[in-house]
Write a protein that binds this DNA or RNA. Structure first.
Lengths: 327, 327
DNA sequence: AGGTTATATGAAAACGTTTTCAGTCATCGC
DNA sequence: GCGATGACTGAAAACGTTTTCATATAACCT
């Protein structure tokens, strides 16, 4: 029914081995190569990638495991990863974990069954630990969240510095009662919080931080509760784009002016953050470079499996806008 | 090196056939099934999906081909598709075409080589035509853009009605010089434009529409040019979320008030559209249902390959906000 | 010329499963 | 008590490639 390499070989009057070599890179005379190519066109042959992968033991596939593709940060990184992968002739399997350790474990098992070439992974804290305890059969590059050091290559933002930078900026603007609302599941949020708290201490200020599930809905609820308290903070540091959006929405709902009643500073320079009044101060992450560097680390790890673990730390760029302007 | 089904069979003291049956659904006695499961645990066996796919001739994979995952509409649809696919034990291969016919053709060929179970595809006009001319080996469900009727199952928005609805609303608000800025590559944009023009004609108004490459940057440039003209329109209909964003940005840059100087109405109820002053009037697409319906059509097509072609038309929901309020 | 090396090709093995096919054993109906 | 039926199980074939291995031919070197 379906045309296979034997049919092409018969049509070209050669062996299947020659067809295989002509299609890949193998020593084949120009004459035969042309015969084969003509036969391929004539028969409409399409190689069967499953068979190819099975025999050659090279899946040419990388797994990309993120929390939720709808988070614009992951959307952008995914696009960069996919471009790099397809450019190298590789497929990408994208998986959404919703920050659920059970789903993370399931997808990691799936990646083993696919015999993937490698995996790029933004793990929860739980997954990072178990990944360290029992390293999988394939190379892993962690993105966004590094977890405990030393186990896997990773590319992350300099989160403590970014968190501290936002505090410094706010303090410079004259704010002192600065709260922090951070995601509860990732090491990234923990690091940003650490940077926040260190900077507050450095300025002799009292840190006041809370954690929340990293999605816009619960963040909005938490922020609304906080901002309705009598001693609400003058400014809020928000640990990612979703939480920032939730906080802004809470402020709007409560009728609080930004930055008059409460200043906001967050992460992820999404396209809408400069369209919303008065513009949101954010730390921009180099999303394309995060994806590209992750692919680079992955391929270098594949080429040299025993080289020491590497951690690429990228700096964020603080984009100052109206939401943190004093007065 | 790597543990295969033969190792499991040896450890369990049974044949590979029995292991295969115990792991899948086959007639195996409870005693042997338990032996096999114990052996799987003991050996750490992971089935090789390439081998499984090759032998069983079932890839359990669907292709999802969209213009750009960074377009929030496609992001949301992708997530819905992936959830549905993984729930059915299928993998998803995501491809970004950037509206480039050459890349579309390349990815379609890739899908054939993967022997995918089916494909969900948002094609450009060019691809829709060639798809109709030479139908591929796998079932295809078109989303967002149906192309010429009759060739493939599809699930689309009622674009003419949505485009007309925005015009009706604007006219109801007292606007009459209403321009339209539409994407240049998709049938969707053409349909929305047709709805716009029909509605304008119905109201006895002069339509004035332009087309632009569907991305925020070029849309902003085109809108800025248009809004700088002396006889600029009082209101603008924008054919998708990216173009809407570009238009808003152009208005801001030119110092035009919305809706005072120019009213804006567009598509895609993205989270930021109600955060930006004065809130943007948009047609919300049922993104989750589009993804779910596409998967449903695909599976029903697989089950019954010869059933007549079906087209699911979903209604948009017009969300009225300040950007179209008169006065 | 004669042997050595390089190059191109084909036959067949191999990749790791699922599935066919044939068989074993127990149960059942009469 | 005996053929028929049914439920499990194992041996081996099959899926469609790539890769080894062996061979033939051509090219090269002394």
């Amino acid at each position: 029914m379906t045309v296979g390499i034997r049919d092409v070989a018969r049509a070209a009057g050669v062996s299947t081995a020659t067809v295989s070599r002509a299609l890949g890179r193998g020593p084949v005379s120009d004459a035969l190569r042309e015969q084969v190519e003509a036969a391929v066109r004539a028969t409409g042959y399409r190689p069967n990638l499953s068979a190819r992968r099975l025999r050659s033991q090279a899946a040419q596939t990388i797994g990309l495991i993120v929390a939720d593709i709808r988070n614009p940060f992951f959307t952008a990184v995914s696009r960069a990863v996919e471009d790099a992968a397809f450019a190298k002739g590789m497929r990408v399997i994208l998986c959404n974990t919703d920050e659920d350790p059970a789903r993370e474990a399931m997808y990691l098992r799936l990646m083993e069954e696919e015999r993937v070439t490698g995996v790029i992974f933004a793990p929860t804290g739980a997954a990072a630990d178990s990944l360290r305890a029992e390293p999988p059969a394939f190379p892993v590059v962690l993105i966004d969240r590094a977890g405990p050091p030393g186990a896997h290559d990773s590319v992350v933002l300099d989160n403590p510095a970014a968190g501290a930078g936002l505090v410094d900026h706010l303090v410079g603007q004259g704010f002192s009662r600065i709260g922090g609302l951070f995601g509860s599941t990732s090491s990234t949020a923990r690091e940003r919080r650490a940077g926040y708290e260190a900077a507050m201490a450095r300025h002799g200020l009292e840190p006041s931080s809370r954690t929340v599930a990293p999605n816009a809905a619960t963040a909005e609820a938490a922020a609304a509760r906080w901002l309705a308290e009598s001693d609400r903070p003058e400014a809020l540091v928000l640990s990612n784009g979703l939480i920032l959006m939730g906080a802004l929405r809470a402020a709007r709902t409560l009728g609080l002016r930004v930055p008059g009643d409460v200043a906001l500073a967050g992460f992820d320079n999404e396209p809408w953050t400069d369209l919303v009044e008065p513009g949101l101060t954010v730390v921009e992450q180099p999303v394309d470079e995060i994806g590209a560097q992750a692919m680079r680390l992955l391929f270098e790890r594949i080429a040299q499996p025993d080289q020491p673990v590497r951690k690429v730390v990228l700096s964020g760029r603080t984009v100052l806008r109206g939401s943190t302007r004093r007065g």
